[in-house]
Amino acid sequence: MSDTSKQELEQNLQALAGHQQEEDIAKHLANEWQKAENTFNNESVHHTISIFGSARIPAPEEKTDSACSKMSRFYQEAQQLAYELGKIIEDSPHQGVRLITGGGPGIMEAASRGSFDAGHPSIGLNIVIPREQRLNPFIAAKHSIEFQYFALRKMYFLRRAKALIVFPGGFGTLDELFETLTLIQTKKMKRVPVILYGKDFWARLLDLAVLEECGLIDNTDESLYQIVDSVPEALEAMQPVFSSLNNSK
């Protein structure tokens, strides 16, 4: 076989391998989609309240030298808030509402834990990544959905969302937050309450006045979210959501 023929054969094999890889990705996405739909449909979930936050923030009782240990109040308050929300949902006449989290440790665990304590089975949207992520013990296996792809996971955080509550977090949390704000801003999804928990944290992080001064966002875009600093404030911000659900047919 000539060198030219060998080169052509190698190119054809590489192209075939690339095509097969694309087909495998498409099949994997379809399988993840179907598994997620089956879980939500089997549980008769029509509406969700998503709670985001860092996987690194520990519970107050955990002893760690991490800088995140200074933020453990957010674990405690996420647990308390999820407990209160879980009780409201369980006592609500409107069926088909469920709390969902990222299914992992940190704030995700806190929210799952509070929901569990309230007798409300939350759903966990887990993700396969090299570090930090593991299924927390407060989510039943049948209520856990494991994703390979962030895009599909984020879609399911929003697909049935009636509200989003965002605790302090890193790049992953910010990715989820800003994608949500972008989709609402561009009217790719229906507007829902986006509640940022932790006044000092978000005030330091989000200086959107810079974007407004540069004309990169509208002066109304900051109204796409609200900031709260306590469990009672967060519950008050959620009242319109529950009123809407209870009044819906």
Rank of each mutant, 00 (worst) to 15 (best):
E84T: 09
A15W: 02
D218N: 08
P137K: 09
A78G: 06
S50C: 13
P232K: 12
F40C: 08
D24Y: 13
S230V: 12
K63H: 10
H46S: 12
I51R: 08
V166A: 04
H143W: 03
F201V: 01
S50Y: 06
I184W: 00
W33Y: 07
S223C: 03
G53V: 00
K162R: 05
N42E: 11
K154H: 01
D218T: 08
Y149P: 06
S122K: 03
N38T: 13
G53T: 00
M189I: 00
C68I: 04
M71I: 00
E109H: 03
L135K: 11
K199E: 04
C68P: 02
A26D: 15
F150V: 07
V128M: 10
Y83G: 13
G86K: 03
I51P: 07
S2H: 06
I57L: 00
A203S: 13
T186K: 01
S54I: 00
K142H: 15
V128D: 14
S69W: 11
L152P: 00
E146K: 13
L245V: 14
Q95P: 05
L158W: 02
K6Y: 14
A59G: 04
E212D: 03
F242V: 09
E22A: 09
F40G: 09
L177P: 04
G18M: 10
F150A: 11
F52H: 14
T186C: 00
F147C: 06
S243M: 09
R159N: 03
D175I: 13
D117N: 05
F52V: 11
E233T: 11
I88T: 08
E37M: 06
K190G: 12
S69T: 15
P105L: 10
P130T: 07
S248H: 09
A110H: 08
Q95S: 15
P105M: 10
I227C: 15
L9P: 02
R153S: 03
I184R: 01
E132V: 08
V228S: 14
L183V: 01
R98C: 12
T48P: 03
D117E: 13
N38F: 08
G215C: 07
S50P: 07
T4D: 13
S243V: 07
D229Y: 09
N38V: 11
T182I: 00
A161H: 04
Y75D: 14
I89Q: 06
G103R: 02
E8N: 12
S44H: 09
L208G: 02
I100S: 09
A110N: 12
P168V: 02
Q226A: 10
K87E: 07
Q21P: 01
I127E: 08
N219W: 04
Q148A: 14
L181T: 00
G119K: 10
G96R: 07
I25T: 08
T173D: 05
E84L: 09
E213A: 13
